[in-house]
């Protein structure tokens, strides 16, 4: 197969995963102005949930059910984290909330370390079967599912946020919490909902990530988490469409760097890119610029 086509497909796969995870960052930031550092760990726990239900469960469960269970569990976890660690700090300086988020992230990582051990586990792809042939190229079913399901969920989310009542409430809260409250919106519920959706999508990203690299480990969420965050910043943090676009761009940049420049310098290049974006256009591709009023 052409190297270029292969790279494009890889980019699309990795990009889908980053986009899914980036959505969680961007939604939470949009609503409570917090970089939820623990999001990468939710992604990791999502993968572990899937691993448990796929390989340690007495019955064979269908793939879709495994995914749904893991997403629901991770969603609940997201809600729980917000209630325990962030709720009390909504009015506190943002730096305190950020420090708490970092604390939560390390806590969850080490919790996973205690429960599952430090040695990485092999995650067999849950989707097997002969590769499909598309336009004359062999593409594995896993890749197709990853890209297909990610796009499906992204469209569903976009419709949810634009068309439904809770989705509109979510947008209202992200623009002005107090005004939204005065309009009769239950802020706590909306924040919980945001965390639930973000975490569920993050978990999905985690499952695909684990299957793509066929490995799970307690620290697996750190790097993709950071890169997904970079994607969210790239797209304009707080903007869901931006996060999706950013995810794909970072995915492509990463795979093309690996393929054509050097795999050793990938992380440095991606982080360098982050710094560059922050300097040139901190509001990202689709974000709005805000300045402190004197």
């Amino acid at each position: 197969m052409d190297l270029l086509v292969q790279q494009l497909i890889n980019g699309l796969t990795v990009g889908s995963i980053y986009a899914l995870v980036a959505i969680g960052y961007t939604m939470v930031y949009g609503i409570i102005k917090l970089i939820n550092f623990a999001h990468g760990e939710i992604m990791m726990f999502g993968a572990y949930f899937a691993f448990i239900f796929a390989f340690m469960f007495p019955f064979d469960l269908p793939f879709v059910l495994i995914i749904i269970i893991s997403m629901v569990l991770s969603g609940l976890m997201g809600i729980l984290i917000e209630r325990i660690a962030y709720k009390k700090l909504r009015k506190a300086p943002r730096i305190s909330a950020l420090i708490t988020a970092i604390g939560m992230s390390i806590f969850l990582q080490n919790l996973a370390l205690l429960i599952f051990g430090a040695t990485p586990k092999v995650m067999q792809p849950l989707i097997t079967g002969d590769p499909l042939i598309l336009f004359g190229y062999n593409i594995s079913r896993l890749t197709l599912t990853t890209i297909g399901l990610s796009i499906f969920f992204m469209i569903a989310l976009t419709l949810f946020v634009r068309k439904t009542k809770p989705g509109k409430a979510m947008r209202a809260v992200s623009q002005d919490q107090e005004a939204a409250q005065l309009m009769g919106i239950n802020i706590n519920k909306i924040i919980s909902l945001t965390f639930a959706i973000g975490s569920a999508l993050g978990a999905l990203g985690g499952i695909f990530y684990a299957m793509t690299y066929s490995q799970i480990a307690p620290t697996m969420g750190v790097m993709p988490g950071l890169k997904a965050f970079i994607a969210a910043v790239f797209g304009g943090i707080g903007n869901i469409t931006g996060a999706m676009i950013g995810g794909y761009i970072i995915g492509f940049i990463e795979t093309f760097t690996k393929g054509y420049i050097s795999s050793k310098w990938v992380d440095a290049i991606v982080f360098g890119l982050l710094i560059l974006i922050l300097l040139v256009k901190p509001s990202g591709l689709l974000g709005k610029n805000t300045k402190e009023k004197v």
Binding site: L34, I35, L98, L226, K264, D267, A268, F271, L278, P282
Partner: peptide, 25 residues
């Protein structure tokens, strides 16, 4: 100088990681 708050935190985090990658390579 151009950044503040959490953005600055993320940038310095990025720099720390870059330094580590550079030393490794």
């Amino acid at each position: 100088l151009r950044l503040r708050g959490d953005y600055l935190g993320i940038m310095t985090l990025g720099f720390g990681e870059i330094i580590r990658v550079v030393i490794t390579n």
